[in-house]
């Protein structure tokens, strides 16, 4: 009389429920797709079994396509500044000239990305899901900058262990409980925090300037001036960059990302006009 299915497992055998009508999988809440899981759908935090079983080597991303160049970040007395240009380069073609590479995560945190921009869009979708969850829980908790940084480290490191990396260097900037936060994550999951940071070329071109001029209690004006100088230096020497920048700021008042702007540049240096003059034997 009372209907009691004896088995819900195809492995054990059919119970009173015809196996096709077994509602199990359709009704059971699917575990929410773990954001840190790879796109191939394997379990999070473990090696993709398909990658082990297939006889051919499984190939994932071999190189990035549309990329962004350096992101710079510095802390100052009451917040953090991030800056970068707005170029999405297809190889060395300046293909997309107004791509926002600085994004807000929530009121205390933002992320800047260099590297593959489609991967960055995917990463932003993950972070958006997390902050949507925070909104839906409606309990006042939200992700702190350090948590976002740790989370991204897990995601990127996990994906590199799947041999399917997200091809990005990310910078996380935030301000929480009176303290600025600045951290970075590389595409293989290397992560660290520092008072000033740069990804890619910026590491070589801008960091020396920052080391020289940065101090933790600098004012916002000083920080912006330093940032402009670093941007300009990067722009002069990095061919995959354009003179259209955005500057973002996180302070206790929240996140603000500036409209794109250009810096005044001077290309009239003598050495620029004839760079081979002092190098005999070149052209």
């Amino acid at each position: 009389m009372l209907h009691r299915p004896t088995s819900h497992s195809a492995a054990i055998g059919p119970g009173p429920v015809p196996s096709l009508a077994n509602p199990g999988p359709a009704l059971e809440q699917q575990p929410r797709h773990a954001p840190q899981a790879p796109s191939c759908g394997s379990e999070a935090f473990c090696v993709d079994p398909q990658a082990l079983s297939s006889s051919h080597p499984r190939q994932h991303t071999q190189y990035p396509y549309v990329t962004g160049t350096s992101v710079l970040g510095i802390t100052f007395k009451d917040g953090v500044l991030l800056a970068c240009d707005t170029l999405g380069a297809y190889g060395s073609t300046k293909r997309y000239k107004s791509f926002d590479r600085l994004r807000k995560v929530n009121d205390v945190c933002m992320v800047g990305a260099s590297g593959e921009l489609s991967d960055f869009q995917y990463i932003m979708r993950l972070l958006e899901e997390l902050s949507d969850d925070d909104f839906c829980m409606d309990d006042g908790h939200h992700l702190k900058p350090a948590e976002v940084h740790s989370y991204l480290t897990r995601v990127l490191y996990n994906r590199r262990n799947k041999m399917d990396p997200l091809w990005n260097s990310l910078v996380v900037g935030g301000f929480h409980s009176g303290k600025p936060f600045l951290g970075t994550v590389g595409m293989i999951g290397t992560s660290y925090t520092d008072a000033h940071l740069a990804t890619g070329f910026g590491n070589h071109l801008a960091r020396p300037l920052m080391r020289e001029k940065h101090h933790p209690d600098m004012s916002e004006e000083e920080a912006v001036a330093l940032m402009h100088e670093c941007l300009k230096v990067c722009y002069y020497r990095d061919k995959n960059s354009i003179n259209k920048f955005q500057l973002a700021k996180v302070t206790k008042d929240g996140v603000s990302i500036s409209e794109p702007f250009a810096l005044e540049t001077n290309w009239g240096f003598k050495l620029f006009q004839n760079p081979a003059a002092n190098a005999v034997g070149t052209w």
Partner: peptide, 23 residues
């Protein structure tokens, strides 16, 4: 702790446990 490097908010965990109990 592994993913976020921080302690889990109580209300969230308790809600998860309750959802598990609902099943």
């Amino acid at each position: 702790r592994f993913v976020y490097d921080s302690p889990m908010p109580l209300g969230r965990l308790v809600r998860q446990v309750a959802d598990k109990a609902q099943l």
